[in-house]
Structure formats: C-alpha cells, structure tokens
Design a protein around this nucleic acid. Sequence first.
DNA 1: TAGGTTTGATCAAACGATTGAGCAAACGAT
DNA 2: ATCGTTTGCTCAATCGTTTGATCAAACCTA
Lengths: 335, 335
Amino acid sequence: MSTLSDVAALAGVSISAVSRVLSNAPSSRVSGATRQRIEDAARELNYHPNFAARALKFSRTNVVALVVPDLTNAIFTELMRGVEEAAADLGYMVLLARAESMQPAAATMAKLVGEGRVDGVLVQVGDNTTSEDLAGILDGRVPAVLINSTRDDHVGSVILPDEAGVAVAVRHLVELGHTSIGLVNGLPTSDSASRRSVGFERAMTAAGLRINPAFVTSFGYDPQQGRAAMRTLSALAERPTALVVANVNAALGLLVEARTLGIAVPDDLSIVAIHDAWTAANAWPPLTTVRMPLYELGKISMAAIFDRIRSEAIDDVVVTDPEPELVLRESTARR
Amino acid sequence: MSTLSDVAALAGVSISAVSRVLSNAPSSRVSGATRQRIEDAARELNYHPNFAARALKFSRTNVVALVVPDLTNAIFTELMRGVEEAAADLGYMVLLARAESMQPAAATMAKLVGEGRVDGVLVQVGDNTTSEDLAGILDGRVPAVLINSTRDDHVGSVILPDEAGVAVAVRHLVELGHTSIGLVNGLPTSDSASRRSVGFERAMTAAGLRINPAFVTSFGYDPQQGRAAMRTLSALAERPTALVVANVNAALGLLVEARTLGIAVPDDLSIVAIHDAWTAANAWPPLTTVRMPLYELGKISMAAIFDRIRSEAIDDVVVTDPEPELVLRESTARR
DNA sequence: TAGGTTTGATCAAACGATTGAGCAAACGAT
DNA sequence: ATCGTTTGCTCAATCGTTTGATCAAACCTA
C-alpha cells in the first residue's frame, strides 16, 4: 500500500502537489512536466488513495448500508442488483446487513451510523415488522430511506406500485372468466400487504365482483405460510376458483400444498403470484406472475438515500416505470 | 457524532484519559472518580469511536469482502449466514460484493484492498471461472481465502466434502435398487464439479457399478443448464433410471423439463440433488437432497481469512463436520 | 530596472483516535 | 528533611489525505 508520500518522494515533489494532481483539482496550477512525473510515479507504485484517511477528512465514507430481513426473499436479488448498480454510478458501495429481526437491526444500524461506517441506511422492512418498531431506530439523526414501506415522519421511502400490480393479476383472472377470486396476502401488519389488500378490493370492485372475505387470507409471504393459506382455503365449503398470491415464494408453497391436497393447478384453481423470480419459471406448473419493478426499486432507493445524505430532502416515491407486467406461464386457465 | 474531545471537555479531562478509559487499556492508571466521570460523559453524549480514525490509526478496518458470483446460487444464503455470524464473533463486518464475471471482480477486489477498505477477501468462485482467472487477482499481496475452490499457490481455501456428498446420493440410489445412474454435473472447469465427478466415480465403483459415460453431463449448475441436461439424457436410446444432480437449482430446472417431456419423477426417474435449500421442499415432487455443511463452510471460511490476516498462515481446509446428510423427500423411488 | 502579477510549487493545520513519553503531585523510605 | 517511586494525568506525534495560506521565481508592464 503506497501513500502520497511515497509517490511524492518518487516524483521528487511535495505531497500537496501529488494530492492536487491525482484528485485533479481544478485550481491545481501544476506544470505539465510535473504532472506527468507524478502520474508516472503513481502508476508505478500502484497508488490508491487510502479509504480511511479520506473518510476521516471528509466525514463521509461513500458507503450505504442495505438492511434486509431475509436473503431468500423473492424481492431481494433484483433489489440488490438495482441498489448496487445505482451505488456504483454514484460512487458508493453497499454494505449488506441482514437482520432477521428488527431489534438487533436497530442496534446494528445505530452502530453503523454512530461509528461513521456508513453515510446512510436503506431499510427493507420485513413483513413481520411493524412500523412502530422502526420509530426508535430512525429518530431523525440517521439518513434513512425505507424500501417498500412508509412512515409519515422524517423518513423517506420508496415503494412499489402494489395496487397496480394486484390489479394486473385480478384483471387477468377476470378476463379468463373467473368471478370467485381469493387473495393470499402477507401479514396485515406489513405495509405492502395493506397496499395489496386495497389494490385487490379496488380491482374487484372495478370488475363488478364481490369479495368473499373467507377467500382472503393473510398468513405471510413465506412458502410455509402459503401452504397454510392453501389448507385454510381448501377446508372451505365453497372455494375460490382463482387466487392472487401476494408473493411468489408463498405461491410456491401453496402450489405444493395444492398438489398434496389433490387440487389441480390450473384446472381446479388458477394462480397468479406477485413478483417474478427464477423459481416461478421452474415450478410446476410454471407460475404466471406479475413482474414488479424491483430493479428500479433498488435504483431509485439508492438515488433517494443519496439525495437524503446530501440534503435534508425527504420524499416518498412510488416506482411507476416500468409498470407491473403480467408474465404469462401455465398456472392460470379459463373458467 | 460526538468525538473524544467532546467527551473530554464534558468530563473535564484530556482526550488521552478518555481514550484510555473507553478502550479500557490495561495500563490505564486512572482514578475511579475520573473513570466514572468519563464513562458518564461518554454515555451522555452517546459516544461511538469513529471508524475512519481507528482504521487510519491501525491500518485495519475489521471488514472483509465476500465476493460471490451470483446471489441466487443455492449455496449463497447459508454460506453468507455462516460468514456473518463468525464475523460478528470475531469483531468483523462483511462487505458483500457481487461479481457476475471475474474480470470486474478482480478490479473491484484490487480497489477494495488497494484503498484499504477491507482487510481481506473471501472469494466464492463461480463455476464458469477457471482457476487461472484468479491468479492475477491474488498475487500474494491480498489476504484471500477461496471458498469451495483450491489453488496450489499462496492462497488458502476452504472446501466442501463434495466427494462424500455425492457418495451419500449414490448410496441412497443404490439402496433403492438403481444400477443405471447418471450424473448431472457443473461445468468441467469448476473445481467443485471435478471433485463431485471424482466422488461419483468412486462411489459407483465402490457399489460395483459401471458408469455409462453418456449418462454424465456437465452443462452447469443453473436451472437452464439442468433443463439442457434433461433434454440430452432423454434423447438417449438407453436412459438412466436415476440421477445425481450436482446442484439443487439445476435439479429444479431438470424437474420442469422432465415434466415437459412426460418423464415421471420418481416413477420413471429418481433424482437426488446436492445442496438442500428451501426451494427443494417446495418443488413437485419435493426433492430428495444431500444437505452440505454450508453454514459451517461460511464460518470456517471466515475463521480462515481471520487467521490469514493476522499471520501468513495459509492452509486448505475441508469442512467435515457435520457430514453430508441425506434429506429424504419424494423424488426417489425403488427400482 | 523597479514594481506588480502570475505561475508552480510547498507549508502546515485539520479530521479523530491511539500511545509512548513526560511531568507534577503524592507517597514512602531512610 | 531529602530523595526515589508510584500515581494520575497531559503532551505531542502519528496514521494518510485535503486544502487554504504562503512564498520564491519567473514573467509582464511602464
């Protein structure tokens, strides 16, 4: 690890000169010859400016933390990709912090920011975290942006067009002639689940259909919870002919349970899942899904925390481009 | 963000005293009263030592990078969990760096280490990366440990008991009466694939079975490549009755292709996949797998890089505890 | 050629924490 | 009472980088 002094010594100049040249400050006032010698020396020594020294000097690390509840969550991979790419463009790096529950997460975040390891925090709230859990964590001092969750106080947020996504799913089922449609939702405590619930109600109403409350479950987004939902629904005297499943992971579990129960998909039951993931294409039957703009969610979240770090600006953004898109596979059939 | 000076001012002492108390140096020589005042002041100001300053002082960040080729890889989640937990125990944090291909990864790693952002690098090599690609990256100066891949020069490594894992799979199939067993492997360039290949040969030989070379494919570990393998095998005049699939993701793709081709699993074809993941339990039929010690792989890898950072010690470790374990589900049947 | 401006560089302080060296006060021994 | 030792704390240098202030030399103008 060579330092500015090493380069300066090799080039026979002062470290100030080297610093100005290598950070190409506009007011550098360095002769061409000197500049050349410095650049040569830097290259020869494979100079890289020391991260800690710059962070200390600028009180800024150009690192943001991405706190996620669960790495197996369907939305994680694409989200991460979006965050990372935007971060790279903005000169940032991403420190991934998994946090099964939000209590250690709060401690972790406090530490990360308190020690100045990161300039800001992106928080993807799990669906078992209530909005209140976050209050303590985010009391103003920490630049933070919530991903797919909102709060009305001093914290920015970026959310998905959940209503529109569910509407796409419902419309597809309605077009296939279904009228008896259920919703397999996430836990009611979660923000995204309530948006999806609203979307479901609106879309059903718009289609002139009545919602049978028994057809709406809210066990959670995980495969196990999807299975539970299927069991509950199958126990009903009157069953829905189609389901909108609010998460593709839950849909996978639901699919297995349906098979176990001898319910044929799509012949007995049509399924549309929210979120497209590689697993949907590799299920049987291949799952028809609604692709949500997760990559863009990541990019925009990164842009938002970037703005938040630089100014006090806080806003709540909905990712609208691209719109939720139906990915037609084989889990839905005409009624 | 309060600093040592802030605490010192509040406590009415010098920053040296504060530093010694808060880092509880053994040779502190501070009176009880002063110590108390300092601790109170620190608590009141919510003091956290500045990360950049310490990193600069110690030339050490207590951060390691984990470079993975693909976040959707079956082994990633558990691996990451192991790495993170061991890191936390050792006072380290993990910077996750995704690297689709190894060229940008090399640049990224060079930057990470060159700038002193991380003290070491854990590299999980993708199966499309040849061992040679790594040579340039790891020319000695960077403390690095390869995960599930080996090199014979100045780089440590931690690998899975791949041979044993495949042997467990083969034994299970043999016990079910299968004699015509195939292997769906990763790309031959990858280290793990060649170990699994060796394991397959040994296990078959041990069972007194002949390997039909046509039953061995090596397209890769991804679902698409699993599908390709299934297509190739189904085109054969004589087909295997059972397959060991070297990766659970490939097995998922293979399963879908089998259905598409009208091959019934497990009636026409038994399948055992290497690596257990939540997706295996949520496939149809639920996949019988061999659980590999991925969590331990992560823990031990972190311990290895920790040692490597502190000393020049380099060694190659095989994770042997727990041993690969059969997870019996429904994708295998008696022949 | 004297006086002023521009050019091309260096000096030195600062960021926050650590730590060996130094120093005054209190203490103990003779 | 004098001299060494211990105690309890502060001074100051250091890590590597940035940047306003400074300064000598070269250049321009009248």
